[in-house]
Computed example of a mutant assay.
Amino acid sequence: MDGRLRIGTRKSAMALAQTEEIARRLTASMPGLEVEVVKFDTTGDIDQTSKLLPHGGKGGAFVAQIRAAVLKGELQAAMHSLKDMPGNEDTPGLVIGATLSRDPPGDVLVLRPGLSVEKLQRSRGKGLKLGTNAVRRAAYARRLFPDVEVIHFRGAADTRIRKLDQGERQRLPDGGAVGPADALIMARSGLERVGLAHRIAYEFAAAEMLPAVGQGIVAVECAAADWRTRELLSSIDDADARACADAEREVLWVLNGHCNSPIAGFAEIKAAEMLLRASVLDLGGGVIIEASRTGLASRPRELGRAVAFDLLAKGAAEIIERSRPR
């Protein structure tokens, strides 16, 4: 199929690597198609000191600007990391046209030179600073390393590691700074995308740190009424990744989880069955509610709703409400 497709993406190394993979798959599937990558400086990329909440969470910081360009017809598609896309709200006029096959979804530990996993575990983190901007990772970190100081830490994957290695402090919006960090918790998939997988010191099992909803899945969004683009994107859609995404995001939808809620969800498919695990934590990591169910992989949203209602029955709504910004 001949033609041209303009796809928007962030300028970070990881986002560009993800978008190049989309382009490669599209042109392999549709010989003659020309893919133009349009790079955006999103709010979250420009402001690397503030927490994401003032920008509307990850959705406002990394997604909104590119979505607006699709809705205006300036782009045919937009690349997003699925975990950055709000799951508790619809965006009228847009649909996810494709989900790529899932990359490794787990979280990993990256350490400054001279620090070992054994020392971190033995000390329970006492006297050490662990950097992350994700409330879910921060809550789990406080459970795993009760004496660690969790600090606000921003930047693209390669930028964060550079700051870790150079002992650079994280600037704050009020002019102050925190750090430097001794360790970081990051997504394995992101490190692999930018060629930094060798920095992984430890990979957390799902039982230790359940991944974020959609972590490791690249989503391609387009206009709901643009049937030509939807047809193009359908050629690279991975059915298993889409089913897992549907189940996990249904949990967020039912819980009405916001960007300050430590919520995790992870689905796995084996043959015709899907196992879905989800959890809700308080910000301090001292309270955790967990639920899991197995169901038909062909009915992922139904399974997601059932797991979300299990969490609600155990008191998840109260925890989420307490974490809501006042």
Rank of each mutant, 00 (worst) to 15 (best):
M1K: 13
G3D: 04
R10P: 02
S12L: 03
S12C: 01
S12K: 02
A13M: 06
A15W: 02
L16Y: 10
T19S: 14
E21L: 13
T27V: 15
A28Q: 12
A28N: 08
P31Q: 02
G32H: 11
G32W: 13
V37C: 09
V38R: 11
D45I: 14
K51F: 12
P54A: 07
H55V: 03
G56C: 01
G57L: 08
G57A: 04
G57E: 01
G57Q: 03
K58W: 09
K58G: 11
G60W: 01
A61T: 03
F62C: 04
A69E: 10
A69M: 06
V70D: 00
L71P: 01
G73H: 05
Q76L: 00
Q76M: 00
A78W: 05
L82V: 01
L82K: 07
D84H: 12
P86S: 10
E89N: 07
E89V: 13
T99P: 00
R102S: 11
P104N: 08
P104H: 08
D107N: 15
L111A: 04
L111Q: 07
G114N: 09
V117I: 13
E118T: 10
Q121T: 00
R122D: 10
G127D: 03
G131E: 07
N133M: 11
R136T: 13
L144W: 01
P146D: 03
P146N: 06
V150S: 08
G155F: 10
G155R: 06
R160A: 09
R160Y: 08
I161K: 08
R162C: 04
L164F: 07
G167H: 08
P173G: 02
G175M: 08
G176R: 07
G179R: 05
P180H: 05
A183K: 01
L184N: 05
V194R: 07
G195H: 08
G195A: 06
H198V: 02
I200M: 10
I200V: 15
A205F: 02
E208Y: 03
P211F: 03
P211M: 06
A212W: 10
G216T: 03
V218S: 15
V218M: 10
A223Y: 09
A224D: 07
A225C: 09
L232I: 14
L233K: 06
I236Y: 06
A239S: 12
A245F: 14
A247Y: 06
R249K: 15
R249L: 14
V251N: 03
G257Q: 05
C259Y: 10
S261D: 15
G265W: 06
I269Q: 04
K270Q: 14
E273D: 15
L276S: 04
A278V: 09
A278Q: 04
S279T: 08
L281P: 10
L281G: 06
L283Q: 11
V287K: 13
I288Q: 14
I289T: 00
E290H: 14
R299S: 12
R301W: 00
E302M: 11
E302Q: 14
R305A: 13
V307M: 09
A308F: 06
G315P: 01
E321S: 00
R326L: 12
